[in-house]
Design a protein around this nucleic acid. Sequence first.
RNA 1: GCGCCCGUAGCUCAGUGGACAGAGCAGGUGCCUUCUAAGCACUUGGUCGCAGGUUCGAUCCCUGCCGGGCGCGCCA
Length: 553
Amino acid sequence: MTPEQLSDVVRSAVAAAVERGTLAVAVPDAVVIDRPKNPEHGDYATNIAMRLAKPAGRPPREVAEAVAAELRAAEGVAGVEIAGPGFLNIRLAKDALGRVAVQTVTAGEAYGRTDVLAGQRLNLEFVSANPTGPVHIGGTRWAAVGDALGRLLTASGAEVSREYYFNDAGSQIDRFATSLMAAANDRPVPEDGYAGAYIGEIAAQVVAAEPGLLELPDAEQQERFRVRGVELMFAEIKRSLAGFGVVFDTYFSEKTLHDSGALEKAVARLREQGHVYETDGAVWLRTTDFADDKDRVLVKSDGEPTYFAADCAYYLDKRERGFDKVVIMLGADHTGYVGRYKALVAAMGDDPATNLEILIGQLVNLVRNGEPVRMSKRAGTVVNLEDLVDAIGADAARYALARASVDQQIDLDLDAWTRKTNDNPVFYVQYAHARIASLLRGAADLGLPLGEAADVDTALLETQRESDLLRAIAEFPQVVSSAAELRAPHRVARYLEELAGTYHRFYDACRVLPRGDEEATPLTTARLWLCAATATVLANGLTVLGVSAPERM
RNA sequence: GCGCCCGUAGCUCAGUGGACAGAGCAGGUGCCUUCUAAGCACUUGGUCGCAGGUUCGAUCCCUGCCGGGCGCGCCA
């Protein structure tokens, strides 16, 4: 029995008490089930009696008595104790807990999937780095977290589309093109231009692809460098992301919004809604009507639309494509956009609370030998996605970036994440998986297959270490769904570390395979199922994070 | 000045209103002739930044302070 199943059982017990007349209260929608740290507090515990005490108008312990009386009769429940201020400590029947191992192995890759977010259509935008250079470390954090979040949301039943918005219009791209042209013609890096070795490399590729390019007038050259340069740079970005295991459903070009008249359409819609005015020759959106700090310019006095105007058009486009909710992940240096983005959604006539979600990720600092790695865009010492992968590998990079809460700044220590020791959590978790894989290979060599689910006596799994492991495994679906709902992939990583530790402790205490001349027993089989179940959860969890689950290490 | 994030063990960090606040690392003591020691056991270590408030109950919610990070363009 998993906590979710137990939650339903407890809820039914409350309903039964109400039915019987021993409790007068509205039956709650959901019952919270805890996994107590203290084994004396049973397999699971619930605070439902304390929650219902006030609405029932009775002391928590009396409510607890009424619920416990019903709960004791429930299938799979071996014992119920009332403790402390009114906790219900529940002990499951041995087999009710043990069957979790069978359920897990049987479900395989599907174990952990739920439908809690079924029916939601989400557009998940992340990375969205401009094709003027490689994906920097901040974008890399979002590549890891965003992709993991996408997998989590999908696992929880949501319909998710990953989207990468790229700016291929405007002055930043112009500066990129100018920088390429300067590099190709051996001219100095222009004012506000881009430096770094990649500029020279891209410039050379453009020249190679376009014979006679350097003989053309500057204006024509510039255009060719822009088009080809963006193309090449973007291919480079896609390649590095793919190497990181991140692929998007849609790569959305800002330029297409300009070319299709979508900006004018968006401005017209905002004007219809009555939120647009003109001052000093510019067109403004009155975002202050929607709690923004100041109004925002849509069209500059020189007639050029702003980036914000494109944001408006882009938001409208996403909504017209049928997404209920637009989720955007930004770095902490973009915190200032939240207010104006909410305002634009409201000005469009939508509800920012339901149609928009902006997730802010704090900055990443790199550390080597305890010293901060100095980063300078001008000096070309920016650490980007590929540098990080080269330094510590894709698995460690993804895990390191995904295991921290996005609200927390991270100091990513390049040495710690390459160490093959216990202070490297990704190895700790992967090692547990490889260790089980090795054990299962050993079982196969001994001619000990798992066999049929019906033939396993999981009630034999009765030691503390075994039931600890079963409870940890049972928790996984809830970890996934709550991590999805809270937009917190790091919870999965932390859970996996705990699960790995629980497994290592089990392994240390419980011999699985027969030694020497010993014969396999029913307990051998039960423990093999438990090991296989653990491996399934470790693999499913690592997959959610985009990290491999190695068979050997 | 205003907005967002952070402040929890010596260090790096978990902790969706519940029971004595947790993990890894670092320090100390042990455990490998048989399933991966990249492991495990025991042990040292806390005014959860400070002060109020809400609650049966607060590390968590609210208010105010203190300290650190980031941001506040007719840039993109």
